[in-house]
Design a protein around this nucleic acid. Sequence first.
DNA 1: CGCTTAGTTCAAGGATCATTGAACATTAGA
DNA 2: TCTAATGTTCAATGATCCTTGAACTAAGCG
Lengths: 121, 121
Amino acid sequence: MTNYLPHPATEDITFPAVLTALGDETRLAMIAILASNSERAMTCGQFLQLGSKTALSYHVAKLREAGVIRVRPDGTKRLLTLRREDLEKRFPGFLDSVVASAMAKSASGDQEAVPESTGEA
Amino acid sequence: MTNYLPHPATEDITFPAVLTALGDETRLAMIAILASNSERAMTCGQFLQLGSKTALSYHVAKLREAGVIRVRPDGTKRLLTLRREDLEKRFPGFLDSVVASAMAKSASGDQEAVPESTGEA
DNA sequence: CGCTTAGTTCAAGGATCATTGAACATTAGA
DNA sequence: TCTAATGTTCAATGATCCTTGAACTAAGCG
């Protein structure tokens, strides 16, 4: 199994859990960054601007447990992706409106896309 | 001033606060009921199915402080309304997607519209 | 093996949350 | 004025949240 970190099945994602997971500035910023990065997978390390390693580990777990992101081990790293399709299936239009609002807010904070690692993971 | 209960101005409504306010089953249910009631004002008492008077008072305050609902005194009652236009101005499409998902979820719970008080308060 | 990179786990701490019951305030009606 | 209806406030309680630093695990490189 490439997938030993527990993720809820699509049908087990609940709306209050997703809302709660997104109702935190750090996590909302992570989602905005992930979305603005054109859906490319990102590592926890690429979010260090938002908090300490420990704090990020905590927030990543929250987002994963709520079903908002998928976390896949890759060497010593973790690759994070938005569960866009699953969320769209379950809560149509919701993620897009969240991302739009989250990016509008963080626009004042001048959120530039994270530089690509030219090769690959 | 008809409006002594503190409400945030439209431009002061923040996205994380709104998400946090909605990330609770009771409050989400209240929003779904308010929306399903065709935007008519409702009183706290009409939500007693969802919790005690004290608990409702608490949740109503949370929703008001986050800018999700407006609360207007009317006799001994409080009239609650969704701040639909303000939210739409600030987070376009968001409320509609939330209401849609919230009603889909509570559909299993068989949420019928609250009977109208045929006369008026 | 030894070292580095990347992230996790744990315990502790302070903050906020949601619920409860008792007491209170306000408005309206008899 | 007395009483009922509708909510609010307060203090207490147990749960959950977010952050921190220290210790740890796991993978890859030389």
